[in-house]
Design a protein around this nucleic acid. Structure first.
Lengths: 209, 209
DNA sequence: TTCACTACTGGACGTTAGAACAGTACTGGA
DNA sequence: TCCAGTACTGTTCTAACGTCCAGTAGTGAA
């Protein structure tokens, strides 16, 4: 990690302060105005430098999309981090973050328990049926799914089959990926062809009935 | 404070989720695309409704300026309440809230998910062994136990047997209380005499190994 | 039947905002 | 003297974004 110049530190502090205080990432023009630059390009140059040096992230073209990159090495945030995870009863098709007609509420849980990075796309899936009884996952359980993670053999994954999301165990058999239901009443092995894996199970929450 | 419609709750949850995970307030178009609206105006209408009802704030004309308003009515937060639940690996003897040498950390979870009153004495118990496999509770699970609640037949309870806490199913047979293990390899029925019931299971949390 | 409310579609407008290009100026080192 | 790096000015282009207007449709109460 490269060192920052004095000016770049000031810019970074200003962004941090604005995010804490206003809960709103400043625009380049707001940065410029604060530092009495007369051109947004001056702010842009600094932001770009901070990006190159790894202190900032952003989504190109997006308004107010600057994000601080947490560089804490070994250090843990003092306050435990809570994230709200939306729960879906079913995901009809497409990417998991679309088509939220079935949204059923929200679980709030700490990042430590989930064991995920807070930037990850994560959602909860309400389990219907007993196809995963062999993994001790039962009807009504809420399975926390992390999207965009490469599953390892034996992981429980949410997979899209016939426009319906179901839970299956991901297995590698002689290097080939298969999906397995954990119930003798279901087909044992499904070749993972044309099947879209929505995510990997990272946690499970069960409420009393 | 007015009630929210189902749809408005979903929108609010989505904004909350996006802010937690992406640290970035979604734009109207992002909300619209998420819910498969074809017009940003649909999202705007909901956001305006949420504004009128006092759940959201924003700065007019500013990009990504939506802010959640934390509502408190008479001291009680309407926003979901988080409780931190201590986890014990074992409870050697006596009352469950004593002798905390075995504390193994903490789960933070919202009261809504637990379905309990926040005033209740609640603790987590790390499950050892497979005596409750029949109830889909496996080794390593964290069982959330509510103390001081009268168990109903069929409830999973934490009971003190020989100075060790184990999970059992509480059953009433002809009016008599018994404890049952949910694994054929364990004794089926234990008369509940001199056995101290520590609490009733209200929820379960499982982390990925 | 009318009316209010919710939940959208579709299009348009003007502002906000990121990004790029072309410069100027200072500094410090080779 | 040249050159790279930092720190800007000034302008412009285009996309992103909030907001508005005009509709449509369903529902449930008066």
């Amino acid at each position: 990690m490269k060192e920052l110049t004095e000016r770049q530190k000031q810019i970074l502090d200003f962004i941090r302060h604005k995010q804490d205080f206003d809960k709103l990432t400043p625009t380049l023009r707001e940065i410029a105005s604060h530092f009495r630059f007369s051109s947004p390009n001056a702010a842009l140059a600094h932001v770009q430098a901070l990006r190159v040096k790894g202190f900032l992230k952003n989504s190109p073209g997006r308004a107010r999309s600057l994000q601080l990159v947490n560089l804490r090495q070994g250090g843990r945030p003092l306050a435990p981090q809570i994230v709200s995870v939306p729960i879906y009863g079913a995901i009809p098709a497409g990417r998991p973050m679309d088509a939220e007609q079935e949204e059923e509420g929200c679980v709030l849980i700490d990042v430590d328990t989930l064991g995920i990075k807070p930037t990850t796309r994560t959602f909860g899936l309400k389990v219907h049926g007993d196809s995963m009884i062999g993994k001790s996952i039962i009807d009504g359980d809420i399975v926390i799914i992390e999207h965009g993670v490469q599953p390892r053999s034996g992981d429980v994954v949410a997979a899209l089959i016939d426009g319906q999301v179901t839970l299956k165990t991901f297995v590698l058999q002689q290097g080939k990926p298969y999906l397995r239901a954990e119930n003798p009443r279901y087909p044992k092995l499904i070749p993972q062809e044309e099947l879209q894996i929505q995510g990997v199970m990272v946690a499970l929450v069960r409420r009393r009935k």
